[in-house]
Amino acid sequence: MHPVLSTVLKRVGLGIVTLVIVSAIIFSSVSLLPGDFGESVLGQAATEDTVAAFRKELGLDEPAITRYFNWLGAAVKGDFGTSFSGRSASGVDRSRSVASLVGPRLYNTLFLAGVTAIVAVPLALILGLTAALYRNSFYDRSINAVTLTTIATPEFFVAYILILLLSSLWPVFPSLANISEATPLLERLNKIALPALTLTLVIVAHMMRMTRAAIINLLSSPYIEMAQLKGATRSEIILKHALPNAWAPIATVVAFNLAFLVVGVVVVEVVFVYPGIGQLMVDAVTTRDIPVVQACALIFAATYIVLNLIADVIGIVSNPRLLHPR
């Protein structure tokens, strides 16, 4: 077997192990959430017997270990259980499956993240490369100043500024991104323009600065000096001699930011009233809807693990020492 393949398979295995460990951590920390779902739904007045019966119905009376393995076993098959919400003291059960709650929200989040990534990643790479190329020039300094500003500004503030500029003063885009499943694609894109722009401003800086730093870091290597003395131009040096050796750190930071787009955008969702998974999770935490919280947390963890795995694989494949062993 090619050593790269075995290394990659090992990483995948480690990723799965990590995910299992994370699932245990999620499960135990959710159990530590204060308050009790039964009591909060049934109210203070409910008798102990009623609460006990309700807990039994939800399976909350079983030992934690049993519940963990039941949950994990079902989750592996794609069944995240049934949401706690929708039940009431009156016994009417309008609860929905976690999958049907999370699914559309996850799709929305991935859609927003995807659109943002398509814009932000190439933009960040181009800005980073050109900044490295014209290092210490006015261009480089301005890009750095602008991106530092966008990093330093809280994202809700960026969002409101954009709404003010592009929605109120010059109404180019709508300020609400309240899409539904029925929204057609073009309208969808129009509606998410502002949230996508906000997120782009937030993540470009990080990726661009890392790209620039990774390239500049390599520029002091002896082989770059050699390329200079072989008559290579600046752009040849950056694109041909530095960039192929810089993919690993760049991929890592891109993966990190893409993961952020999935798991860290609740503030932006709130500002633009976007029905993403972040809001769903926050709501679920406040209502102690444990199955939904667990499902969301697990999806978030899986996102990080998968994206980092991809970054690792890019790092491995872009390293000729591993790809072409002796």
């Binding site: 290597s221 002896p222 082989y223 000096e225 050699m226 390329a227 003395l229 072989k230 001699h241 192929p244 050796n245 872009s318 390293n319 000729p320 020492r321």
Partner: peptide, 13 residues
């Protein structure tokens, strides 16, 4: 130019 450390002066990629 021929550099001192050939291992470092060749681009690994």
């Amino acid at each position: 130019y021929v550099a001192q450390s050939a291992a470092a002066a060749f681009n690994p990629a």
